[in-house]
Design a protein around this nucleic acid. Structure first.
Lengths: 228, 228
DNA sequence: ACATGCACTATTGTATACAATTATACAGAA
DNA sequence: TTCTGTATAATTGTATACAATAGTGCATGT
């Protein structure tokens, strides 16, 4: 129990060729390796990665659904790209949805999950004090995971996971800052307490702000240079 | 201009085998033809539809990303299903996002799109008075499409389109009721006016309520029998 | 009777072959 | 020159063949 956080949330199927291709291309798009409107050719990418067209094609379909590329039938796949404005939009949207999630979690959370949430806070404090940034990242992920599950809404869970995956690239270097890590913990704690007090309005508001703060922090740390 | 509303929003690629397979399976899941947890086998479905495994597989990948099936590597694809609660959740989530969309549209809408919005309202009144339900459906779709585009957010647009597609099944029989059609028009009009007056708060609130109303209406008309 | 191992089957994963579509270049006519 | 039609090449769409994996049932030994 607990060593493989996030396995449930990862629908990229790490060990299949398709999964690897999917991940690789997504990474390349999010990191700016592929330019806006660049055409992705099945054979070229297949050769580059040493696989046939089949897994590449399947990865393309997934990438299209995630909005990262646009496939024009019988013509080709074109990179959609992701601008700083897109990132901002995503955070704004996510802020709302995390708020909704916190609200629903307040109503639906089970006793067991509530305990896990408290334990999560406790452990986060522990590791933050010692500067264990890797564990902090994992705990942060898990905190949100718990809330997703506690919302008791299959679809909200699904959507928020997508966002989470989406932003994982950006988040990495972001949470690495211990300052933000500590602030984040404090916010988590407040959200947890609001849920415990069954104050849905408060939980929603705090979760909203939590995401906005994460975004502000990222912006301040000069992400403009990271993703262009 | 205007005869093929929604073509942009449809990422199912109507005329490819994959697109048809995708649509067919989604329909079968949403309409309850496939039971919860039922296993979908590539060859079986392929034979049923007279196609090979390839387009079926690609359709599966898309269906998984939409959360309608769950694929376990090397094992199989299983129907996730969609309960009345799921539908409710989706409407709640969509309500928030349509609200956000209306807010952003208020700020970003172009003059040209504003005019199209007004024209849409006008035409809707026209057709509602004459009971042209087909045109009404089309205009309703287009109304929301315009707002999505006007939000000037690629991602919000993308997400809301997905939801829209998702609920299209349910919506069909819903909007068919002329009563609701007329009420819907009224609500559209109010949203449009709020945007025109640059009152973002009002636009957001009205859009929220608009979706909730649509849900309530659907529930009252006994959708429990439709989707189980 | 029960557990264990092995062969066999069914199903998915991947590669390749073939078909259909689209883009391009070039020749010829207006 | 400019437009148009056609042949050709490049690319995606689909089907099929082969590989890998997981599930099933039976035989065998204790």
């Amino acid at each position: 129990m607990g060593s493989e956080y996030g396995s449930k949330s990862d629908n990229t199927d790490k060990y299949s060729l398709r999964g690897r291709v999917f991940k690789k291309i997504r990474e390349d798009i999010l990191s700016g390796h592929y330019k806006e409107s660049e055409e992705l050719k099945e054979v070229a990418i297949g050769e580059e990665l040493g696989v046939s067209r089949t897994p590449v094609r399947e990865a393309f379909r997934q990438l299209e659904l995630e909005g990262l590329i646009k496939i024009i039938p019988n013509k080709g796949a074109y990179v959609t790209g992701i601008t700083p404005k897109d990132v901002k939009d995503i955070y704004m949207i996510r802020s709302m949805l995390e708020g909704l999630c916190a609200r629903w979690a307040t109503v639906n959370i089970s006793k067991k999950k509530m305990e896990e949430l408290e334990e999560n806070i406790y452990l986060s404090d522990f590791h933050a004090a010692r500067g264990h940034s890797e564990q902090l990242t994992e705990l942060d992920n898990r905190f949100h995971e718990i809330l997703y599950e506690a919302s008791d809404s299959k679809f909200l869970e699904h959507i928020l996971r997508d966002f989470h995956q989406y932003l994982v690239q950006v988040r990495m270097k972001n949470l690495a800052s211990l300052e933000r890590g500590r602030a984040s913990n404090k916010e988590h704690k407040m959200i947890m307490e609001a849920i415990k007090e069954k104050d849905a309005d408060k939980a929603e508001r705090l979760a909203n702000e939590h995401i906005i703060n994460a975004y502000q922090n990222m912006k301040n740390n000069g992400f403009e240079e990271t993703i262009e």
